[in-house]
C-alpha cells in the first residue's frame, strides 16, 4: 500500500494537471469563438463563389479550350492529396481522424493502381505521414495563424498547388480537412478541387446551365480568372474550418481531461483519508494494548 506521503504527492500532481488542462480549455474556448466566427463569415463567399462557378462551368464544360483547372487533364491517373491538420496536438482525435482518412484514401488509390503525391499542411500530419510515405511527400506548409488563418496563407498554398498542376505533376487534387459542425462534432471531409466538380444541373433550367447569362468580358476570360481564385478560396475555407475544428476538438478534449482529473483527485483523496484513519486506529490500538499489559 502506498504511503501517505506518496499519496499526497500524487494528489498534488494530479491537481496541477487539472489546472493545466482547465486553463487550456479556457484558452481553446476563447480561440474557438474567434475561429468559429471567421469560419462562419467565410462560408457565404465560398458558397456563392461555388454556385457562380457552377453556373458558368456548366455552360463552358466540353467546349474546346476550357481551362484545365475546370475540365482536368483528361486523366485521373495521378492524385495530389492535400492533408490539413493542426500544428499542435492535445486536441483529442482531431489530427488522428484526419490522418486516418488520408491513409485510407491513399490505400484506396494504391489499390486502384493510381499514383499519388502528398502535400501536408500542419506539422502534425507531416510528422505522421513521413514515417510511411516520405517518398511521396512533395510539399509542406505550416506557417498559418495560430487562431485564424489569413487569406494570404491560403493564396500561398494555392499558388504552390497550381504551379505543380501547371507542371503536369498531377491530374486530380483533393483536400482533406475537418469541417466544423460544433465544438463536439467535426466531420472529416474530402473535397475535390481540381478539376472543379461541376454540380449536377437540371436540364430544363436555362439559367442553371449558364445559357441565360451575359458575360463581361467573355466567359473564358472570367473562367480563367475565377478558377484560380476559387481554388484559393476553397483552401482558405478549409484552413478556417480546420482552425475552428481544432479549437473545438481541443476544448472538448481538455474538458473531459479536466473532468477525469477531478474524478481521480476524489478517488485519491478517499484512499488518502482511509489510509490516514487506518494509521490512527492502529496507533491507538497499540497504545491501549500497551497500557493494558502494564
Amino acid at each position: 500500500m502506498a504511503s501517505l506521503k506518496d499519496l499526497r504527492i500524487r494528489i498534488t500532481s494530479v491537481q496541477s494537471t487539472k489546472k493545466i488542462t482547465s486553463a487550456m480549455k479556457m484558452v481553446a474556448a476563447s480561440k474557438l469563438r474567434r475561429a468559429q466566427e471567421a469560419a462562419e463569415q467565410a462560408r457565404p463567399y465560398a458558397q456563392r463563389m461555388e454556385s457562380m462557378l457552377g453556373n458558368l462551368a456548366a455552360g463552358a464544360v466540353g467546349q474546346d479550350g476550357a481551362p484545365a483547372l475546370l475540365s482536368g487533364t483528361g486523366k485521373d491517373g495521378s492524385h495530389l492529396v492535400v492533408v490539413m491538420t493542426a500544428n499542435r496536438g492535445l486536441c483529442g482525435g482531431f489530427n488522428t481522424n484526419i490522418i486516418r482518412s488520408a491513409r485510407q484514401m491513399i490505400r484506396d488509390l494504391q489499390a486502384q493502381g493510381k499514383s499519388f503525391k502528398i502535400f501536408t499542411v500542419g506539422t502534425k500530419c507531416r510528422d505522421n505521414m513521413k514515417r510511411e510515405y516520405a517518398d511521396y511527400m512533395v510539399g509542406h506548409f505550416d506557417e498559418f495563424g495560430r487562431t485564424v488563418s489569413s487569406f494570404a496563407e491560403a493564396e500561398h498554398i494555392s499558388q504552390t498547388v497550381r504551379a505543380m498542376f501547371d507542371a503536369g505533376d498531377f491530374d486530380v487534387c483533393t483536400l482533406i480537412y475537418a469541417n466544423f459542425v460544433s465544438a463536439m462534432t467535426q466531420n472529416v471531409t474530402r473535397q475535390q478541387v481540381i478539376p472543379f466538380p461541376i454540380p449536377e444541373v437540371d436540364e430544363g433550367d436555362d439559367a442553371a446551365t449558364g445559357g441565360g447569362y451575359e458575360y463581361e468580358p467573355s466567359d473564358t476570360e472570367i473562367l480563367t480568372d475565377l478558377l484560380p481564385r476559387n481554388l484559393a478560396i476553397q483552401i482558405f475555407r478549409a484552413l478556417l474550418e480546420n482552425g475552428a475544428s481544432e479549437q473545438g476538438a481541443r476544448m472538448s478534449a481538455m474538458d473531459s481531461a479536466s473532468r477525469n482529473a477531478g474524478d481521480m483527485i476524489d478517488k485519491l483523496k478517499m484512499t488518502y483519508n482511509r489510509t490516514r484513519q487506518a494509521k490512527i486506529t492502529t496507533e491507538l490500538i497499540e497504545i491501549i494494548s500497551g497500557a493494558e499489559a502494564i
Partner: peptide, 19 residues
C-alpha cells in the same frame, strides 16, 4: 464598377456575370 465600365443594376436585370 464593371471591367468594361460602371453599370447600374435595377430589379429584373437580365442575368449577367462580370468581372
Amino acid at each position: 464598377p464593371g471591367i468594361e465600365g460602371y453599370f447600374g443594376v435595377l430589379p429584373d436585370h437580365m442575368p449577367l456575370l462580370s468581372m
